[in-house]
Design a protein around this nucleic acid. Structure first.
Lengths: 343, 343
DNA sequence: TTGAAAGCGTTACCAG
DNA sequence: CTGGTAACGCTTTCAA
């Protein structure tokens, strides 16, 4: 090759050993902080490592140890939601914080399209990481079981719709949170309470609807199907759903939206039809996102302990990595009602 | 099985070969789509793979091929900025889209604290990925050179402050964009134009300030140091900087903020001191984030082609992975002025 | 077209 | 405490 091809030289353990005048084994021990090395040998090895700029080869190590010292946080979500919803920011913050004490590197993997999903599947199952935290899985995704079967420790953030309980999970108590929101509306004297639901292929969507119904039933208010319309967590769906609700039942006096984004959409639509908030219609959201504070009027909503959830997911994952034989665990994190001007 | 200890069994290539009644080599060829395999042998191997649920071991493969089939997008930013600024969402979108044609898995790696930074450094240099795209590096980080030296193809998103040009980069033309913003203010008759800068250890911060000065000089307006105050891209710094500017020079008639977030902070402060916008003071931001549309009044700003930048970074990276000997490239992406109500 | 065999760079188990 | 010697699971010649 005449080209300036500066093939990067990666010194190997063997070269370090040669340079330090010791055997491979000793170098390996030094690298892995084994105490079984004489001070002198250690010095010589460290010097050689420095001089050669030696860096261990991860693949070789992984091959023999079966560990990669990294874990993945898998986000099955459109990057639109991913970055517009504070949920993910808080989650990442919690996960990072909890991982700080560890030597594990955090990798985020996104998978939005089906194609990306397949590629991710392939990568994850090939023992790419020691563990995976899967967030906002849709439908009854078989990925978690697959990963566990392949030896990748797995924890779910948010349950799956099915009651399948073979994989550990940490979830927000969505049902109770929604119930809390609707109870509040009832306590404010509202009686014709509608809801804009989340997608019904996600547990958060299903649970929040269930909580809405719980609260109504507890107050002996009949659940009216006309007051329930399906959204998909987006602002746009909040708008269109609100329009539909008003068409169906013009004298609605309150709405529980299963996400702040949808609540904001509902607000827009309510204003567009000249309804006062909360005078004519009270609105409660879910998430306590930044949007909630800045909405007009500021949104009463349910705050989720997302950061804490991230931390707990990590702890659960670490436990699972440490002991693959332990039975799966389930945990629910409690929510909080944040009262602002919209209800 | 009564024992809960279900140690996951990973069948090896060898077992597949045995089951199919062929040699290791043949199985390997089938997996790698080599045409040099008889149809019959291929069928038998594929059947064996299916029956055993075989998945290749990545570490073993990486060890011999020296490839990992994955690339990292490294984001050296607080998760606050990461998720509040649409910049990163767009970037990820562009990168993902461009990677869709490839078999490369995208991994996001965050590094905010110094500790995380070290861990990331260790991971990246250990041949964890085939290539890395580094975004919003602060100061004169030596990481890129280190990676290239270790054989990891590297591309920068955004230049570094120094003129060091040993690593390929793709950048927004921040200087021209800022200049464009300020020229617009001048064209609107503004003369006492202040600026709230970005951090001066980031090229975006430095360049946008330079563009501000360019425009002023071109219009023969003296650059007044009292009209320049340093922010850090956060909304809070926008507020405090605006307060400081008004203290220093009460009759400011325009402000160019180096980010939308800071511009929004400035708006808040201007309203707090009963100034009309743009009547008394015109405000221009930078980014064209979602915030810009929703600000009160909607923000005139500079739009960056972030998604396109992401795509280009990927193309540059792929080229570099394919040919390590090629000289580093440099590219600037052009910006666009978006006129709204604030100026 | 195919099987056998030689590594790839580490770790881990052995005697010494 | 240490050096030698097996693995680890795969790709890739090299003959056959």
């Amino acid at each position: 090759m005449t080209s300036p091809s500066r093939e990067p030289v990666r010194p190997t353990l063997e070269q370090v050993a040669a340079r330090a005048g010791v055997g491979r084994g000793t170098v390996s021990r030094v690298i892995n902080n084994s105490p079984q090395v004489s001070t002198e040998a250690r010095q010589r090895v460290l010097a050689a490592i420095r001089e050669l700029g030696y860096v261990p080869n991860r693949a070789a190590r992984a091959l023999v140890t079966n560990r990669t010292d990294s874990v993945a946080l898998v986000l099955c979500e459109s990057d639109e939601r991913l970055f517009s919803e504070p949920f993910f920011a808080s989650l990442v913050r919690g996960v990072s914080a909890e991982l700080a004490d560890t030597d594990l590197q955090l990798l985020l993997a996104l998978s939005q399209t089906g194609y990306e999903r397949d590629r991710l599947d392939r990568h994850l199952t090939r023992q790419y990481v020691d563990g995976a935290m899967l967030v906002s899985l849709h439908g009854d995704d078989p990925l978690p079981e697959k990963l566990e079967a392949r030896g990748v420790a797995t924890v779910l953030g948010g349950r799956r719709p099915s009651s399948n309980q073979s994989i550990s999970y940490v979830d927000i108590d969505n049902r109770n949170g929604a119930r809390r929101a609707v109870e509040y509306l009832i306590s404010q004297g509202r009686r014709c309470i509608a809801t804009i639901t989340g997608p019904q292929d996600m547990s958060a969507g299903v649970e929040r609807l269930a909580g809405y119904e719980d609260a109504l039933r507890a107050a002996r208010i009949t659940v009216n199907p006309n007051l329930i319309v399906a959204g998909d967590f987006t602002q746009r769906s909040g708008e269109t759903s609100m329009r539909e609700l008003l068409d169906r039942v013009p004298d609605i006096d309150a709405v529980f939206a299963a996400s702040d984004l949808m609540a904001v959409g509902a607000l827009t639509q309510l204003r567009a039809t000249n309804r006062s908030i909360p005078g004519d219609v009270a609105v409660v959201g879910f998430d306590d996102s930044l949007l909630a504070q800045h909405a007009n009027p500021p949104l009463t909503t349910i705050r989720q302990p997302v950061e804490a959830m991230g931390r707990r997911m990590v702890r659960t994952l670490l436990a699972r990595i440490a002991d693959r034989a332990a039975p799966p665990t389930a945990e629910l994190m409690d929510t909080e009602l944040i009262v602002r001007a919209s209800a």
